[in-house]
Nucleic acid binder design. Structure first.
Lengths: 130, 130
DNA sequence: TCCATATATGAACATATGTTCATATATGGA
DNA sequence: TCCATATATGAACATATGTTCATATATGGA
């Protein structure tokens, strides 16, 4: 995951005839005006995308319980230190986590309580439907 | 996006020597016990993944402002009705939106206020860092 | 200075994902 | 019954993404 302003997949050809005819013009215009600016929406999608991976979710949920070094995380996830390190880099660049280096180890922690809140909220949502 | 319990990308070979030696056993065990069950974490990642795409974010943000048909959405996004329909299917299967069919049109709306809340929360987070 | 260990990172590659295009399906009207 | 329009959906394909492997870098100890 490059995680630096990605472009969508799909083909390269530009969107052809966009759509149909029965468009409710008033509503379309209203929503178009009311929608947050393109860039904000881009950041929003990127924000959620960073949370949308099993490994990263596990890392974040682990860090909610306290500071941990790469080794610990690898052990907890049952993953290679390399895989964890790659994902930590993404989380670092997205400002989800911070590092503290001590000796040969690197201790990671959540950046702020905001992240923890969103995870909590997501967990509630996911669990309530069951 | 298949969005039905996906498996990670990566190679097929099983994870080799997982990690290092300086593991803080106590913490690792504690976190391991405290972590939500695997399946819940899977759902959580999937939940965020569904929100992690520009087109879907635009659709959801549009629907926060009221019910809209596929045509309207295509017009608002400047995308093809087909692309929108494909993404709406994903959102439907993930229970983010509901449909109401009337005549030849299909009117979509957010499933519940929960979704709207999460989007709001995400927006706050994304905007505050600027 | 030489080693071992903890992390970080680039390349390769198997998969996952999103859009376009071609069709199928459904509905209302003539 | 025949058509046009709105959606839905499968296949193809260009990209994006995550893991493994091979190395590079940093640090502490002998």
């Amino acid at each position: 995951m490059k995680h630096v302003k990605t472009r969508p997949a799909g083909r390269k050809t530009p969107p052809s005839g966009t759509c149909c005819q029965t468009v409710h013009e008033d509503q379309v215009l209203r929503v178009r005006e009311d929608l947050p600016p393109e860039e904000i929406l881009y950041d929003l999608a990127d924000f959620f995308k960073a949370l949308g991976d099993m490994t990263r979710v596990k890392i974040l949920e682990s860090l909610r319980r306290g500071e941990l070094c790469v080794c610990d995380l690898a052990a907890i996830l049952g993953a290679s230190a390399s895989a964890v390190s790659h994902q930590l880099k993404i989380l670092r660049l997205s400002n989800f986590v911070k590092v503290r280096k001590a000796g040969k180890s690197a201790y990671y922690r959540l950046s702020d309580s905001h992240v923890s809140d969103i995870l909590e909220r997501g967990l509630d949502h996911v669990q309530e439907d069951l």
